[in-house]
């Protein structure tokens, strides 16, 4: 080994040791940090060795290649003339028909029947429960308390989720699905009595029917009419006053 080869040999030696260390680290359950660090050193050793070899040891030759031009003078008669042009058209039509027929099974990817779009489950008389299924109690909510509620029996239902806010003298329930891009409207600013969507910062006025105060949401949050039942529980007085979630072409 010559002197000038030594750096390469040293780097390759370090790489070999690091690879052995990787295997040992794995066998000893040393953890992902050790695995990654030893793997990084093993790769870096080879990287340094090859880099030094390529840039310092190997003769720095330059080659010059001529470039060919691809423009052919005989370009016109590359494709031999095809007879039976009528059949060619028919072949094209057959392939097109097969292609169109093959599109139909794609329909199976979609939902069956009429299951597209968000559909609220709320009906008059349905009880509001929290995400754990416990019925909500009007008297247990202090001013500026905010809870997520679902219709009893439909916990976790995307389209039916409601954010229930206690303001002085009143309980107000809005759809928790932002009318902009469908994120849950999960931030409540108590001082301003505003609901804010954490995704794109649309702001809704809790005291004014969920009106949009700022941000990219195009519509107010749908409001759920609610009543207090005789036992202190909270029940829906009907469905939302507007379509839930972001609009699409079919939302008319």
């Amino acid at each position: 080994m010559t002197i000038e080869e030594r750096p390469v040999a040293a780097a390759l030696g370090a790489s070999i040791l690091a690879s052995i260390a990787f295997a040992v680290a794995f066998a000893l359950h040393a953890g992902d940090g050790w695995l990654g660090a030893t793997a990084a050193i093993a790769c870096a050793g080879i990287c340094i060795a090859l880099g030094y070899w390529g840039l310092r040891l190997a003769p720095q030759t330059q080659v010059t290649e001529p470039r060919e031009s691809f423009a052919s003078e005989a370009g016109d008669d590359v494709v031999p003339p095809v007879s039976r042009g009528g059949l060619l058209w028919l072949l094209g039509a057959a392939c097109a028909a097969l292609g169109i027929a093959a599109i139909f099974p794609l329909r199976s990817l979609g939902p069956r029947g009429d299951a597209m779009g968000l559909r609220s489950r709320w009906r008059a008389g349905m009880r509001l429960v929290d995400p754990d299924g416990r019925p909500l109690d009007a008297s247990s909510l202090n001013v500026d308390a905010v809870v997520t509620a679902f219709p009893e029996g439909f916990i976790g239902d995307e389209a039916s989720q409601v954010v229930l806010v206690r303001v002085p003298e009143r309980l107000i329930a809005y759809s928790k699905v932002c009318t902009h891009a469908g994120c849950p409207v999960a931030i409540y600013r108590a001082k301003e009595r505003e609901l804010v969507c954490p995704c794109h910062q649309s702001v809704f006025d809790v005291l004014d029917g969920g009106r949009v105060l700022a941000g990219p949401a195009p519509r107010a949050l749908p409001q759920l009419p609610i009543n207090t039942a005789s036992d202190g529980g909270i029940v829906a007085a009907g469905d939302f006053d507007a379509r839930v979630g972001p609009d699409d072409w079919d939302a008319t």
Partner: peptide
Amino acid sequence: NYALRSFALGTGVLA
């Protein structure tokens, strides 16, 4: 020359 440099680059990215 170039193969050495290129493999050095590849192992460098991996490192």
